[in-house]
Deep mutational scan, measured.
Amino acid sequence: NLFVALYDFVASGDNTLSITKGEKLRVLGYNHNGEWCEAQTKNGQGWVPSNYITPVN
């Protein structure tokens, strides 16, 4: 599942992941309501807002 970041997101805690607009990432899963997804980039792994990313076509 390859996705791309639509916006910059700055991590606010130990379990969140900073991403940069245009960065590619893999989604590993979603939380119970789908608002957050666990993602992996070359810089690490953590939670990002699911509305900040979109699938790569």
Results as ranks from 00 to 15, higher is better:
residue 7 Y to F: 14
residue 23 E to Y: 00
residue 28 L to K: 05
residue 52 Y to G: 11
residue 19 I to N: 00
residue 47 W to I: 06
residue 30 Y to H: 04
residue 45 Q to Y: 06
residue 14 D to R: 14
residue 19 I to K: 02
residue 6 L to R: 12
residue 4 V to L: 07
residue 22 G to Y: 04
residue 33 N to C: 03
residue 11 A to T: 11
residue 24 K to N: 01
residue 42 K to R: 13
residue 9 F to L: 11
residue 21 K to Y: 07
residue 6 L to S: 08
residue 12 S to V: 07
residue 55 P to G: 09
residue 46 G to A: 10
residue 23 E to Q: 09
residue 45 Q to L: 12
residue 20 T to M: 06
residue 2 L to Y: 05
residue 48 V to L: 12
residue 46 G to C: 09
residue 30 Y to N: 07
residue 32 H to A: 14
residue 57 N to W: 01
residue 16 T to A: 03
residue 2 L to I: 15
residue 23 E to G: 02
residue 5 A to D: 01
residue 2 L to Q: 08
residue 11 A to K: 11
residue 2 L to P: 02
residue 36 W to E: 09
residue 29 G to S: 10
residue 48 V to Y: 00
residue 41 T to F: 06
residue 51 N to S: 12
residue 36 W to I: 04
residue 17 L to K: 03
residue 5 A to T: 03
residue 20 T to V: 11
residue 27 V to P: 07
residue 35 E to W: 03
residue 7 Y to S: 14
residue 8 D to W: 01
residue 33 N to Y: 01
residue 10 V to T: 11
residue 10 V to Q: 15
residue 13 G to H: 08
residue 1 N to Q: 07
residue 30 Y to G: 11
residue 34 G to M: 09
residue 52 Y to L: 13
residue 14 D to M: 07
residue 12 S to N: 11
residue 41 T to M: 05
residue 32 H to V: 09
residue 42 K to W: 06
residue 46 G to D: 01
residue 24 K to F: 03
residue 19 I to M: 09
residue 5 A to W: 01
residue 57 N to S: 12
residue 19 I to P: 00
residue 30 Y to Q: 13
residue 38 E to S: 10
residue 24 K to V: 06
residue 30 Y to M: 11
residue 49 P to D: 02
residue 33 N to L: 06
residue 24 K to L: 02
residue 36 W to C: 03
residue 27 V to R: 06
residue 56 V to H: 12
residue 17 L to R: 04
residue 37 C to R: 03
residue 26 R to P: 00
residue 38 E to T: 07
residue 20 T to E: 04
residue 2 L to K: 15
residue 24 K to Y: 05
residue 42 K to T: 10
residue 44 G to E: 07
residue 20 T to D: 04
residue 4 V to F: 05
residue 43 N to I: 12
residue 9 F to N: 03
residue 43 N to R: 11
residue 50 S to P: 02
residue 52 Y to N: 13
residue 45 Q to S: 13
residue 11 A to N: 07
residue 47 W to D: 02
residue 6 L to T: 13
residue 53 I to C: 13
residue 4 V to E: 11
residue 55 P to S: 07
residue 55 P to Q: 07
residue 24 K to S: 10
residue 56 V to A: 06
residue 34 G to R: 15
residue 23 E to L: 01
residue 7 Y to L: 12
residue 9 F to E: 01
residue 49 P to T: 00
residue 16 T to K: 10
residue 49 P to H: 04
residue 55 P to L: 09
residue 23 E to D: 13
residue 52 Y to P: 00
residue 2 L to H: 02
residue 1 N to K: 06
residue 43 N to D: 13
residue 22 G to P: 00
residue 26 R to W: 10
residue 28 L to V: 10
residue 46 G to T: 02
residue 29 G to E: 08
residue 3 F to S: 05
residue 36 W to S: 13
residue 3 F to C: 06
residue 29 G to F: 03
residue 4 V to C: 05
residue 33 N to F: 11
residue 14 D to H: 06
residue 55 P to I: 12
residue 23 E to S: 09
residue 52 Y to A: 15
residue 33 N to T: 15
residue 44 G to Y: 05
residue 3 F to R: 05
residue 53 I to F: 02
residue 25 L to A: 04
residue 48 V to T: 02
residue 9 F to C: 11
residue 8 D to Y: 04
residue 38 E to D: 14
residue 7 Y to P: 00
residue 5 A to R: 01
residue 41 T to W: 05
residue 18 S to A: 10
residue 48 V to G: 00
residue 35 E to V: 07
residue 33 N to W: 04
residue 26 R to H: 12
residue 21 K to L: 14
residue 7 Y to K: 15
residue 39 A to I: 06
residue 40 Q to S: 13
residue 11 A to V: 03
residue 22 G to V: 00
residue 4 V to A: 07
residue 26 R to N: 15
residue 39 A to V: 12
residue 10 V to Y: 04
residue 52 Y to M: 14
residue 13 G to W: 04
residue 1 N to D: 07
residue 18 S to G: 10
residue 57 N to V: 13
residue 21 K to N: 12
residue 10 V to S: 10
residue 34 G to L: 06
residue 57 N to K: 15
residue 12 S to M: 15
residue 32 H to M: 15
